[in-house]
Design a protein around this nucleic acid. Structure first.
Lengths: 337, 337
DNA sequence: GAATGATTGAATCAGTTGTTTCATAGGGCT
DNA sequence: AGCCCTATGAAACAACTGATTCAATCATTC
């Protein structure tokens, strides 16, 4: 009884079993299992229906999943998770680490580990500081300017190209007339043609300020376009060109500056532009996603290689599927790959 | 560490409050309170009726006790105790839903400001959770694998292309044989030619997993290349293909998933690859930067626009900045430097 | 192309949930 | 005694719980 009290809670075993059985589950059951695997602790508190809703699954599917795992029903599946949570509120990370860790700890790893911790910690700090410094009002105003523009030109070079790309990509899901200023084939400046004062430019630039970004912004200023600049200093070359300047921090223990705060702000901008687009924007997103889906851009569960016989795909462990789960054996379907 | 960011859960406060109020309670309420004080964690899971039975009290008494403490009812009294046990920070999904409902209200600017705050807040949470979940040891090991490879193929599509681009860009500053898998001109797969088991692949992929990323990873696996996958689930299609899987969170109140944690991890990886490159890598960075500078890639102070005709003063320090920056004054002081 | 069987969605079930209501019981006060 | 007010118990409530059933759908095989 109390043999397994210390080490491995029953819930852990269930989760590993779940992963083993996963490839043999039906699509709908997979979706349920997927959610359960990602958020194991939810099941302890959440009711079947709520959980099903969050996993985009019929309520009954949760029961079926539980039964497929050899339990009587949802309630008995939930019990172990409650127990596990009751005795020790350990971190979600512990589990992932346990599952994946085959680490032989090195001495050298210590310094690296500390670097990792410090970098992430400073990103955390930067995030809150940046938003606080900018002020959400100003942010909303900048987003409003962008949302109201005819076209939005997005500029970001080198390490800030990711931010520009992200904004362009995300906004293109619900909005036309997004222009990303990449330098593909040396056509950087060409894109600026046709810019008017009805347009807006969103520019990301940190020190050292890349020439292209600055010049593009200057050009936009002469055309009378509204400019929103995400930059790192009040005396950045962009500051004299715009009323909407969003200052973000970049401090990090690492050699390169951190782009995390920029991307966070970029995401907020996108969300606010989206919000100002109203219902039309939302349905545009849905439409875009659906289009991508029918286009086959996404990998689907149907593409997963199914293992007909016993074979743990998770690795060399072969932790042994619980015998109750043997009820999957008859489901030996192999889909077209 | 700061993983214990809840220094004082609300549930603790409730318990001390309970003890304070205790003497003023009626006999029946005391009995209920007594049981609650002795077994505080029971309330998180047990139903009102069951709890009442164990405490030898009427079911309604539990409600009355909750109300006596200032809560709406048993449910709202239970919430803090559940939160305390919960591993993840309080309900992302819940917050998102609340936010969505709120957005439809008339005070739009208010909602936008709150959206910004909550997005950044959840990014913050995601950062620490992700690093904790991954574990710095594993992170260092993954970086070691990449650093030791002959070539590094970097894969990331759609919203995760920023991460791939960043890693490629940053690592190219100190390392050769970096290959970014962009789809420029439809040449996505072509880049994989020549991959051997001496190489490594760094792939970013979240749900919905883009087909190209998965297929590229599968190909790399057949070639025997080392694979480091940054993904969002233990049952992601990449999980069966690699030993080095780095799990990161993506929760955000906004419509799109957050890429911030991914980029943070990407930065850490870059820093660690750089660190393992030693002095040679460092000087490579310096060299690269210098080369960029002489190449004129960066804007310099000498390039600052002088105000030619209007508003007389054309001082070379920072003439145009002043008046525009006046509107930012209050922000400046908050931020410090 | 029809037949088969697994898989799914919707409706439905009895039981339980948290909460409210109401009537009774108790105890202090004039 | 009377009255008033709180405390308590019991019942009723609507909403929700987990679970079951059945028809429709899908993919596969003959």
């Amino acid at each position: 009884m109390d043999a397994e009290r210390d080490q491995t809670p029953r819930s852990e075993k269930i989760l590993t079993d779940l992963q083993d059985v996963y490839p043999r589950l039906s699509p709908q059951l997979r979706r349920a299992a997927h959610y359960l695997i990602d958020r194991p602790d939810e099941i302890a508190f959440t009711s079947m229906r709520q959980l099903a809703e969050r996993a985009n699954v019929q309520p009954a599917t949760m029961v079926r999943l539980a039964q497929a795992l050899g339990f009587d029903g949802y309630e008995s599946l939930r019990e172990p998770f409650r127990d596990a949570l009751r005795r020790q509120p350990a971190g979600f990370g512990q589990r992932a680490r346990k599952l994946l860790a085959r680490t032989s700890r090195r001495r050298k790893g210590r310094a690296l580990a500390q670097l990792a911790n410090e970098m992430v910690a400073s990103d955390r700090d930067n995030l809150s500081l940046s938003l606080e410094a900018i002020g959400s009002d100003e942010l909303a105003e900048a987003a409003g300017v962008l949302a109201g523009a005819r076209r939005i030109y997005v500029v970001g070079q080198r390490s800030l190209f990711p931010a520009a790309f992200y904004v362009h990509y995300a906004c293109s899901m619900f909005r036309e007339e997004m222009i990303l200023m990449d330098g593909n084939g040396g056509t950087f400046a060409d894109r600026l043609r046709g810019m008017t004062d009805a347009d807006a430019m969103l520019v990301f630039s940190f020190e050292p300020y890349s020439r292209g970004a600055v010049e593009a912004t200057e050009f936009a200023a002469t055309r009378g376009a509204a400019i929103v600049a995400v930059t790192d200093s009040l005396v950045s070359p962009l500051s004299s060109l715009t009323k909407h300047m969003l200052l973000v921090g970049t401090d990090t223990p690492a050699l390169f500056k951190s782009v995390v705060p920029v991307l966070s702000i970029a995401q907020v901008l996108v969300a606010q532009i989206l919000a100002q687009g109203g219902q039309a924007a939302l349905s545009s997103v849905a439409e875009s996603e659906q289009q991508l889906e029918t286009f086959g851009a996404y990998w689907t569960e149907a593409d997963r290689v199914r293992v007909p016989d016993d074979a743990g795909d998770a690795g060399d462990d072969s932790p042994g599927v619980r015998e109750d789960a043997a009820s999957f054996d008859h489901k030996t379907e192999q889909r077209g790959s």
